[in-house]
Design a protein around this nucleic acid. Structure first.
Length: 270
DNA sequence: ATGACAACCTGTGGGC
DNA sequence: TGCCCACAGGTTGTCA
């Protein structure tokens, strides 16, 4: 579920409810996330006041008067604000209760997500990350230069967080379709002009998804409880074997790259 | 250094 | 209805 737009949607949904509020209680029901939540985590959060929220790549950061909470939603995680009378359900692993009575509840069936308390504002997980796709640091020229010595498939290239963060499987497929580039084409065999188109497509697909509240397959719900609407505008993801919306006649082909589904139009993407 | 791949988990859907 | 297998939005770590 959570790709960059979902994380950003979650951040925007949550921020107004936590900003300026103090943590009154923390309940950890299951510490076994991707990295086990260490003993003492609850005490580090308790009594601190939220100064703001940020996003870096697919990480959500909650800044406090001192220290910072780093959250990753993994493959199946979600965060939402709930009223105190709402009973925790299966896989509701962490509750952070605030002085306005609301609870920030972390839910994650697969437990691929993570939570870290940062006393300083750096962490190994945040080192060596590439530029944000929606920033001015990221453009076609940058991609083209990075691709010079890369013979790997372009889809894997744009999904590499050292190159650019936040481009997950859904949006990688969509952006390559928009730019007319086959996902299995070697990264170093794409022209600068086509990289300009690809950078534009990546920005476009992510920004559009954020605007409509995330993609949301299955049951994604943003921090404010509203579902995303991007899924209905997907052009290729999940449509292997179906007809291409652009050229109609041809069938979309599905292949696997690094054990993940890639879908593309043999006619429109070269 | 690059790249291929296993690993971490649970839930769901399809085929039989 | 039930069983078994394949697959799912991500990232890290290991090994060749």
């Amino acid at each position: 579920m959570p790709e960059l737009p979902e994380v950003e949607t979650t951040r925007r949904g949550i921020e107004p409810h936590v900003m300026g509020h103090k943590v009154t209680n923390v309940i950890v029901r299951d510490r076994r996330l991707r990295w086990a939540i260490p003993p003492g985590f609850e005490q580090q959060l308790a009594g601190r006041t939220v100064a703001g929220t940020r996003r870096r790549a697919k990480y959500l950061l909650m800044d406090f008067d001192s220290g910072c909470l780093l959250v990753h939603l993994g493959m199946s995680g979600s965060l939402r604000m709930v009223a105190p009378e709402e009973q925790p359900r299966k896989h509701d692993h962490v509750d952070i209760e605030f002085d306005n009575g609301l609870i920030l509840r972390y839910h994650d069936p697969r437990r691929f997500g993570s939570m870290h308390w940062l006393s300083s504002d750096s962490h190994a997980l945040l080192d060596h990350l590439g530029p944000e796709p929606l920033s001015d640091d990221f453009d076609g020229d940058y991609l083209y230069q990075q691709a010079r010595r890369r013979s790997s498939a372009i889809k894997l290239f744009i999904m590499d967080a050292k190159i650019v963060v936040g481009v997950g499987n859904i949006y990688a497929n969509e952006a390559l379709f928009m730019a007319g580039i086959r996902p299995d084409r070697p990264a170093n065999r794409v022209s600068k002009a086509r990289y300009e188109a690809l950078a534009t497509a990546i920005k476009d697909v992510l920004a559009t998804a954020i605007d409509v509240g995330g993609t949301t397959l299955r049951d994604f719900v943003g921090g404010d409880g509203k579902a995303g609407y991007f899924a209905q505008s997907l052009q290729v993801y999940g449509r292997g074997g179906e007809s291409c919306f652009r050229c109609k006649a041809k069938r979309l082909k599905e292949i696997r790259q690094s054990n993940r589904a890639s879908v593309f139009c043999v006619a429109c993407q070269r």
